Simulated assay, not measured.
Amino acid sequence: MHCQPERKIPVYIWLKNKQPCLLCDEPSDSAMALCTPCLHDLPWLGAQCPVCALPLPVAGSTCGQCLQRPPAFTKVIAPWRYDFPIDSLVSRFKHHEKWPFGRLMAELLGQFLHYRFDEGLPRPDCLVPVPLSRRRLRQRGFNQAGMLAHWLGRQLQLPVEPQWVRRTQDTPAQQGLGARARQGNLRRAFTLASDAQVRGRHLALVDDVLTTGATAQALARLLLAAGARQVDVYCLARTPRPKAPD
């Protein structure tokens, strides 16, 4: 019995397919939809605060805010500054449903985290995406943090727990607000699911961009109060100042 049809025509080999770079549209010279020159030109985050990843002019120093008021989370891991073209990719993924851009950035973030794990960064027990409120989820149709966490979880072989934290209140944009006002907005914005098994576990929050850090701070406090051992933050980019949209 012949299971395959006999055809005397060329067979298309997918492994030899050259996909275009998503940034410059030239043929990619790697397995990703990004060519090497565009990869090198991304706004890689250099000197930064070792706690909140705020871009700093000099490496090896901690920012004043983390020195004066250490955050509840232990460390922020972000490969890029929120600058061109990352800001454009995030916006198109987040607001225009251009999911290939999100998938590409998640793949690069996963590679970056693998590198950091090899350097000694402790691996978390699981990933927890930052939730959206029901109203915003209905408007957008998807949670970008949840999609990023899903892609990262498969790449890093880590479980993802999207239902552990829920956003019960939609808060106004944090841009331009002082620290006290930001904390007030988020004081009762999140709740922990009754079946969330966080006690004694090392968790990593996943989001697209870290701006003020108020959302990560509120969630880290909630998880630590429930018994989590450590909370880190994994995101695509860090802003030098509050300019990214919520």
Score class of each variant (00 low, 15 high):
residue 224 L to D: 08
residue 11 V to T: 15
residue 159 P to E: 03
residue 215 T to F: 07
residue 22 L to R: 05
residue 23 L to Q: 10
residue 185 N to Y: 07
residue 75 K to M: 10
residue 177 L to I: 01
residue 95 H to M: 12
residue 84 F to P: 03
residue 126 C to F: 13
residue 23 L to S: 03
residue 54 L to G: 03
residue 45 L to Y: 05
residue 123 R to H: 08
residue 158 L to K: 01
residue 96 H to Y: 15
residue 99 W to R: 15
residue 211 T to W: 09
residue 10 P to S: 09
residue 174 Q to K: 02
residue 135 R to E: 15
residue 184 G to C: 11
residue 183 Q to F: 11
residue 67 L to S: 05
residue 186 L to I: 11
residue 183 Q to K: 14
residue 180 R to M: 12
residue 95 H to N: 13
residue 83 D to T: 08
residue 69 R to G: 02
residue 241 R to D: 07
residue 204 A to E: 01
residue 93 F to Y: 15
residue 234 Y to D: 00
residue 22 L to H: 11
residue 161 E to R: 07
residue 83 D to I: 02
residue 141 G to K: 08
residue 83 D to P: 01
residue 128 V to T: 08
residue 238 R to F: 04
residue 210 L to F: 08
residue 131 P to M: 01
residue 100 P to H: 11
residue 154 R to M: 09
residue 218 A to N: 10
residue 243 K to Y: 07
residue 12 Y to G: 07
residue 10 P to A: 11
residue 46 G to P: 00
residue 223 L to R: 01
residue 224 L to S: 12
residue 116 R to W: 11
residue 30 S to W: 10
residue 69 R to S: 13
residue 15 L to C: 09
residue 32 M to Q: 14
residue 161 E to Q: 12
residue 106 A to E: 01
residue 15 L to M: 04
residue 10 P to M: 11
residue 121 L to R: 03
residue 131 P to Q: 01
residue 115 Y to S: 12
residue 110 G to F: 01
residue 28 S to I: 11
residue 175 Q to E: 14
residue 191 T to M: 12
residue 2 H to V: 09
residue 66 C to F: 00
residue 66 C to P: 03
residue 98 K to Q: 15
residue 18 K to L: 13
residue 104 L to D: 06
residue 240 P to G: 10
residue 135 R to P: 00
residue 169 Q to V: 15
residue 92 R to F: 02
residue 24 C to Q: 07
residue 75 K to N: 12
residue 6 E to G: 08
residue 150 H to M: 11
residue 141 G to F: 08
residue 26 E to I: 01
residue 147 M to S: 08
residue 73 F to H: 03
residue 223 L to F: 00
residue 196 A to G: 05
residue 229 R to M: 09
residue 57 P to M: 05
residue 28 S to K: 06
residue 168 T to M: 13
residue 233 V to W: 00
residue 48 Q to D: 01
residue 53 A to I: 06
residue 170 D to S: 13
